[in-house]
Design a protein around this nucleic acid. Structure first.
Lengths: 171, 171
DNA sequence: ATTTAAGGTTCCATAATGGAACCATGAAAG
DNA sequence: CTTTCATGGTTCCATTATGGAACCTTAAAT
């Protein structure tokens, strides 16, 4: 299977990664969340080549994760800004940051810190269950088949689907 | 800048993506969390070519996100399992799932559902601040320079560092 | 003696990426 | 009024990464 076919997998991870899972894309989005909007600023911040940046921005606009707006009509200058769909990728970014802060930090400490305006403290972000407020971890979650897979099985699609692993989960 | 140099950026996102940000790696980890452990099962589940899978597994073992263990000494058969470092990537996976469930779902519904063993409900995972329990979103978080950057600036490294964007953040 | 299963490696054609050069527009400088 | 600069790109080409198929190795099973 080629990479550009992974969105055919009936899997939210695969479908999401088909949009944001290639080189540079998440770093571009990191910059978006930090307030970068202009082509040349992305380029300086990232060290990406122009045509690669151009390609990635176009794809992100096509998938409606960012939008391209003229900010200077006389010059045709543009700014790229997150859409609602894009803003909602923030948990992905924060979870990457949290993990990186713990496992890839050097002796100097964490590169950035994040202040939560609700309480004024440094963020200690956790993934919690909104029903019980307990932390969500691989050991307290059991995946089960959802309608997105079950309906396709009932219609005879996914004939060679192997659901063994789902019921094993992580031990 | 080449992709294999991004871990030189003083940024937890870049450093994390240098380990798990290339094609296939997150999908391999998805399978790890679902209970897949064997080379051939990864290959069947992912549709990845053998040498690419071999390459990715080796890199994940090198970065201590998974470990390779013999499960059949007479045959030299191996299983790959998440380490503590790897298990802690679960929030990254769940945030990708949550976003994908919302923005990439088809008419049939979500592919998988996740039951939280703490409360028995379907997971509604949210990224919350552990100080105030309020949701963490791009609009309620302000990034500031941390010691990992400040100390390097004080030592005269990062001379051409541009922190403009950090103070803009997202509006 | 041959086949099968697991877990790979090798070879080669194709696709993605990186670096450098080039282009277009309008504003600013001399 | 000619040249230079800033922004936001595109083109060309060499280098890397990836995909597909074939092949390899060990030990058991037929």
């Amino acid at each position: 299977m080629r990479w550009d076919e992974i969105d055919s997998q009936v899997c939210s991870v695969a479908r999401t990664l088909s949009l944001i899972g290639d080189r540079w894309t998440m770093l571009i989005l990191r910059d978006c969340f930090l307030g970068v909007t202009r082509f040349s600023d992305f380029q300086k911040s990232l060290g990406i080549t122009k045509h690669r940046l151009s390609d990635r921005l176009t794809k992100l606009v096509d998938s409606e994760i960012i939008k391209k707006q003229v900010y200077d009509t006389s010059h045709n200058r543009y700014e790229y800004k997150l859409t609602k769909k894009g803003v909602e990728l923030y948990p992905v970014l924060m979870s990457l940051v949290s993990w990186g802060d713990k496992w890839t930090v050097d002796n100097d400490g964490t590169p950035l810190e994040y202040i939560h305006s609700s309480c004024g403290n440094k963020i200690k972000a956790g993934t919690l269950c909104e029903h019980c407020d307990d932390p969500v971890s691989a050991f307290t979650v059991t995946p089960i088949l959802g309608p997105g897979i079950l309906k396709k099985i009932n219609r005879g699609e996914l004939v060679d689907f192997d659901n063994q692993s789902i019921y094993k989960s992580i031990k």
